[in-house]
Design a protein around this nucleic acid. Structure first.
Length: 509
RNA sequence: GCCCCCAUAGUCUAGCGGCCUAGGACGUCACCCUUUCAAGGUGAAGAUCGCGGGUUCGAAUCCCGCUGGGGGUACCA
């Protein structure tokens, strides 16, 4: 099934294996989900595998429970993985700290050391910081650290290490020449970096823990990763990775640096300070995972000049790397909202009702868990708010008055709202009395009958439907903006409606 | 500072040398529908395709420079 697909100079060799490798330092922000999604789409489109790997080599920033939270976020939008920490796989474990414990990285460090591609560096963090500060004070344009030990014989490095001096392992980067690589998204042009711009990066910290640059690369190789799709912030460090592959004598995977997502307001990358981007916040607010999936797919990728609403399957079928663009996307909450509304409207009524339940329960409008009567009532109300919903969290606000009678006056609605323009309060009062009588006399309590009755009443009173219905709307809902009046009356029931109309009339006396 | 990447309306994006008097969407505004609000429909405003040079019969599309934006510059990922 693995076909060779050729799109605009881009050849994808199957079978592909890609991965998403988050570090558990907190919740997964929505940009991370987008990067994971692109990897997932790429794998699914080409019939390959998608692997999840937890990169927890930063002991300082590790957050307990973050990995579970990240996995929950991914699952929420519908991203699953073929191999990963929880599901296992032939290349496990899929957590780097565990891999470190098993000694997986050690031989590769030795390999580099033995080949003279890396060395033990005894310069401490503090010393380095001081050197940087001094260099800056002297006006050095760019401080590129290369440890003096890079030229020592390995035995001398090892002797010093054996004496108990703490050390890191650094990559011995070439001093001259250049390294270049191609990026699938940046149109085949090679990205080139001069070696004098590099420095001897740390591969293994003094704690013995590997650093990202080293661990991810060894793991990618061991796990057979064929394509690395990652955020564009990694472009500058890609030369180090290319160099490392060369040092190991391994074939490097193809790189595709996906565009960053920029903040909706102002400048810069998406950040939790300026944007509400914690993934779990979106389900709290009532975003549908299918809408999020669709929106996120469009952050940096497009299908054509007009198609935006696409199903999961359609996106998988259409997703190709040549249609991922190089320029950054910008987070657009309005667009997401709009799209969520579209997805909500496409849902069957019963489904919307079901999805609103938790929000109504949380607001205390129905039981938690909801009773059968609660469910039935919500189902009855749903058509009235269905197309008015852009976020499920709006449901309680929109439906509140169905569960709690609005009260005129302090703490409730302003009785003045009952009085249309160019109308005296006494007139509105009389209308309400007449409405009360008319509704009381209605034989069948359904929307059509109620509408006929009130239209007739309006004619006999010589009042236009607009003002009359407006007054009734406020009396019944406590607000000027509400779902269609007669559906509301029908759902509320005769007793409740009569009571509210009477209360409103009394408020105008 | 240095290095790298990017550049079509307020925003997202189509466009890969002639089909572009630049298409679609969000947002904005108007009208229609209408008991309010939505939804839906119709339409409008909004881009000298960042600027300046080239290449070409012809450039939003290719090249160079500039400017602007973003990213990187950690014993973080």
């Amino acid at each position: 099934m693995a076909e060779l697909e050729t799109d605009a100079m881009i050849e994808i060799k199957a079978p592909v294996r890609v991965r998403f490798a988050p570090s558990p330092t907190g919740y997964l922000h929505i940009g991370g989900v987008r990067t994971a999604l692109f990897n997932w789409l790429f794998a699914r489109h080409y019939g390959g595998q998608f692997i999840l790997r937890i990169e927890d080599t930063d002991e300082k920033r590790f957050v307990e429970g973050a990995a579970d939270d990240i996995m929950a976020s991914l699952r929420w939008v519908g991203i699953d993985w073929d191999e990963g920490p929880d599901v296992g796989g032939p290349h496990g474990p899929y957590v780097q700290s565990l891999r470190q414990e098993q000694g997986i990285y050690a031989p590769y460090v030795e390999q580099l050391l033995a080949a003279g591609h890396a060395y033990l560096s005894f310069t401490t963090e503090d010393e380095l910081a001081q050197m940087r500060a001094e260099a800056e004070a002297r006006g050095v344009k760019a401080f590129r650290f290369r440890g003096p030990e890079r030229d020592w014989p390995l035995e001398r490095q090892r002797e010093l290490a054996a004496s108990g001096r703490p050390y890191t392992v650094r990559l011995k980067t070439p001093l001259t020449g250049e390294t270049s690589f191609t990026d699938l998204i940046r149109g085949g042009d090679r990205i080139t970096v001069q070696h004098d711009q590099l420095q001897d990066i740390v591969l293994i910290k003094s704690s013995g823990m590997p650093v990202y640059h080293f661990a991810h690369l060894v793991d990618d190789h061991l796990m057979g990763i064929t394509h690395v799709l990652r955020s564009e912030e990694w472009v500058p460090s890609a030369p180090y990775h290319v160099l490392l592959y060369q040092c190991f004598g391994w074939e490097a995977p193809a790189f595709a640096h996906v565009p960053a997502i920029l903040r909706s307001d102002g400048r810069g990358k998406l950040s939790k300070r300026k944007d509400d981007v914690a993934t779990n916040r979106f389900w709290e607010r009532g975003y549908l995972p299918e809408a999020m999936f669709n929106y996120l797919a469009l952050q940096g990728w497009s299908y054509d000049d007009k198609t935006e609403i696409m199903s999961r399957d359609e996106i998988v079928e259409r997703f190709t790397i040549d249609r991922v663009q190089a320029s950054p996307a910008r987070w657009n909450p309005d667009k997401l909202r709009d799209m969520n509304g579209i997805y909500i409207r496409r849902l069957p009524v019963a489904e919307v009702a079901e999805r609103m339940l938790p929000f109504l329960a949380k607001a205390g409008l129905i039981g938690d868990p909801p009773s059968d009567e609660d469910r039935a009532y919500v189902l009855q109300l749903t058509p009235m708010v269905h197309e008015r919903l852009e976020e499920l969290q709006q449901a309680p606000e929109l439906l509140e008055f169905f569960f709690r009678a609005p009260q005129p006056g302090a703490g409730g609605y302003d009785p003045a709202l009952l009085v249309p323009k160019k109308t005296e309060p006494s007139q509105a009062h009389d209308w309400l009395r007449a409405v009360h009588a008319a509704l009381n006399a209605v034989e069948r309590w359904d929307a059509a009958t109620l509408e006929a009755a009130l239209r007739e009443l309006g004619e006999s009173l010589g009042v236009k439907p607009g003002p009359l219905f407006g007054t009734v709307r406020v009396a019944v809902s406590g607000r000027t903006v509400a779902p269609p009046l007669f559906d509301m009356l029908a759902a509320l029931g005769r007793d409740e409606v009569l009571a509210r109309v009477a209360t409103a009339a009394a408020a105008l006396e």
